[in-house]
């Protein structure tokens, strides 16, 4: 057993194996990083062309400029599309947060098959292809006599964002400790006060996350909006119509701004949610408690 031949062989095998493992690991890392490159190349491209001093969106690079950002303010159509789109989305967020949360609470507390069936029905518009939802709503609005414009778009967006809010809030509701609700009832709070003092505070971050998601979904939506819009366009609809006829770099500029704002919003939202989840992030809680008293 102690002869040199025997002791050398395993050593050789081990070094071969570890070399193979290193190579395999290198390949894995390379693949992993390649996917991120693939995911971010388009985003970086848009960002770069927002600062490129040329109306042609192609290489070579012709120098740095901020003129496209300045041009946003001068483009009246673009600006009015932006403000119209924002008002649509803010209305949608406000209504969807309340309605979606209400639906989640109702589904969570009701028993029997009815809430499950209704929930499944309400979710349908969030999963069918956009043009199918858009066309079916356009048909309905035409038959009922709802004119194309702000409200038709808002209703159309609510159809697919309310189920998103409902599902996000419902997921959180189902994870809540039922003994907290019982403790509250036990200590003298009725159903409504229990919701307000115990359940809702635990749902806040889920509702916030759902509201943010709703904001981006609504603000970005093109196809459904296309079916329901009147003469006033939302921002993505305006961008869409522009891309058909050659695209001006100021659109790169505005989507860069919107992208940056979105990312800042997610970072803030993630930090808020993390703080809620991580029990040892102290400061936020203390601040809230003072308000609570």
């Amino acid at each position: 057993m102690t002869s040199p031949e025997v002791s050398v062989a395993p050593a050789g095998v081990i070094s071969m194996e570890s070399a193979l493992r290193v190579i395999r690991s290198l390949f894995a890392w390379a693949g992993f990083i390649a996917v991120y490159l693939f995911l971010y190349t388009p985003l970086v491209t848009i960002g770069i062309f927002a600062f490129n001093d040329s109306t042609v969106q192609a290489l070579p690079w012709s120098g740095f400029t901020l003129q496209w950002f300045g041009a946003i303010g001068q483009n009246g159509l673009l600006f009015s599309a932006l403000t119209f789109g924002l008002s649509v989305s803010l209305l949608v967020v406000a209504v969807a947060s309340v309605v979606g949360t209400y639906f989640a609470v109702v589904v969570n507390s009701a028993t029997g098959a009815a809430p499950r069936v209704l929930l499944a029905a309400v979710i349908i518009p969030a999963i069918v292809p956009g043009m199918v939802l858009g066309l079916s709503l356009a048909i309905t609005f035409r038959l009922v006599g709802i004119p194309a414009g702000l409200w038709s778009i808002v209703i159309g967006h609510l159809a697919f964002t309310v189920p998103v809010v409902t599902l996000v809030v419902l997921t959180r509701l189902r994870r809540l400790d039922p003994s907290l609700t019982q403790a509250s009832m036990d200590l003298g709070a009725n159903g409504w006060r229990t919701f307000w003092h115990v359940t809702f505070p635990q749902l806040r971050t889920a509702i916030l996350a759902a509201a943010l998601l709703t904001l981006t979904l609504s603000f970005d939506e093109v196809v459904i909006t296309f079916f329901l819009a009147g003469t006033q366009q939302t921002l993505p609809l305006f961008i869409w119509s522009q891309t058909r006829f050659g695209f001006t770099p100021e659109i790169n500029a505005i989507v860069t701004i919107i992208g940056a704002v979105s990312i800042v919003l997610i970072v803030i939202a993630t930090r808020v949610i993390e703080r809620e989840v991580d029990p040892f992030a102290g400061t936020g809680r203390k601040r809230r408690s003072r308000r609570g008293r």
């Binding site: 003994s179 509250s184 635990q202």
Partner: peptide, 8 residues
């Protein structure tokens, strides 16, 4: 499990 309200 005590059921203390975690946010208070």
């Amino acid at each position: 499990n005590y059921a203390l309200f975690p946010h208070m």
